[in-house]
Amino acid sequence: MTAIELQPRPLYSIGTVSRLTGVKSDTLRVWERRYELGASCKTASGRRQYTQTDLEHLQLVAALIGNGARIGDIASADRRTLEVLLRQRNGALGDPVPQSKPRILFVGEALCDWIDEHQGCLMNVSALLARTTPQALLDGELDEIADIDGAVFACPHGVNGDLPALRNLAARIGTSNVMVLHPAGSAAALAALELDGALAGQFPPDPAQLTFYLSRCAAEKSADPGAGELQALVQPKERLFTEAELEALRQAPNDADCQCRAHIADILKALVAFEEYSANCASDDWRESAVHACVYAYTGQARWLMEKALSRVADNHRD
């Protein structure tokens, strides 16, 4: 079998990794020199390029060091061990361990070239690029492909002849979350894709549609498996106040010069109602679904932030 090279994307500079981890660039260089804890890739000129996996690993290391761990004790630990250690240090009430981003396989030379020019679409995923055909990948060595959460296949010459290979490859890597990009195809082939549950799109891809698909993969990874409702696709933030608690805060005596509790409680009641409404918005059109998903996510975030604000105001009044 021919080994298939998988190219990770996106790639981050050391400055970006420093910003995202809170670890100084000089410290990252020391960790790489002393503990081989560094970038998986380098350019021809020797510039470090960190993969999404590298970044997530370093974020766990940084979180543990922030909780009192010593770099020498954890530098050689794998991700699973780091996650266990972080849970133990955080305790039941600590911050949750960050979840890894979904691994998405992109297959097709033209598609991989397009991705390299549009890496902004990959902000929610960890991508693996296979610059080959679905059949060649199926015939090659697939040991490197594990824990794939979704796949995007490009069929620039039409989907008709590639349909069997697409089905077999999706089954081989163990994912039903598939997007197939093509310029044209017979009605029967496109209908077969739809029956298989695949999302079909044009090639070259529409960046908005591809971003929506990848965002859905990210949401599904953090939601309950198999859930298809909008409120399950976007992981909601738990409410900090019940309806009764909001009403009690709204009715509580306020200072003459400060009515913040009552105003924030009113805002929260409106946000809660709209959040429930937006979660039940449904559409068969992917563009409308993407808009509804964003509205629902942003509303939940706004509600959670206002709950944080109300907590601060309520604590201040108690003091």
Score class of each variant (00 low, 15 high):
P96K: 01
M123L: 10
A75H: 13
E109K: 02
A297S: 00
I148D: 07
A191Q: 15
A39S: 11
T133A: 02
V291Q: 06
S283K: 11
D78Q: 09
A192D: 15
P10A: 00
V107K: 03
A223D: 03
C281W: 13
E56H: 14
A151Y: 14
E247K: 01
Y50Q: 07
G197T: 04
Q251G: 08
C281M: 15
E247G: 08
V234T: 06
S13K: 01
A146E: 07
L60W: 09
G120Y: 11
A244S: 05
A256R: 10
I4P: 08
A189Q: 14
L122V: 11
V61Q: 05
Y50L: 04
T242C: 04
Q202I: 06
E247W: 05
E243P: 11
G22A: 14
A279V: 08
D116G: 06
S100E: 03
D224Y: 10
E141Q: 09
L195Y: 00
E307L: 12
L210K: 01
D95W: 10
E276Q: 07
V84D: 00
E276N: 02
A62N: 10
C155K: 12
L60P: 03
A77P: 08
M123Q: 09
L28Q: 01
N67A: 10
L230W: 10
D319V: 12
Y296S: 07
L181R: 08
P204Y: 02
R70Y: 02
T81P: 00
A227M: 13
V97E: 05
P98I: 03
A189W: 10
A244Y: 03
S18M: 06
A3T: 02
D266H: 07
C112V: 02
S176N: 12
A187G: 14
Y298S: 12
E32D: 00
A309T: 08
A219P: 09
E307V: 09
A200H: 08
R70F: 06
S13A: 03
D162E: 10
S76L: 07
G66P: 09
L193D: 14
V125Q: 01
S283W: 06
G91W: 13
Y35A: 04
N160M: 12
E220F: 05
E288D: 14
A146H: 12
A188E: 15
G150P: 09
A302D: 02
T51R: 06
Q119D: 13
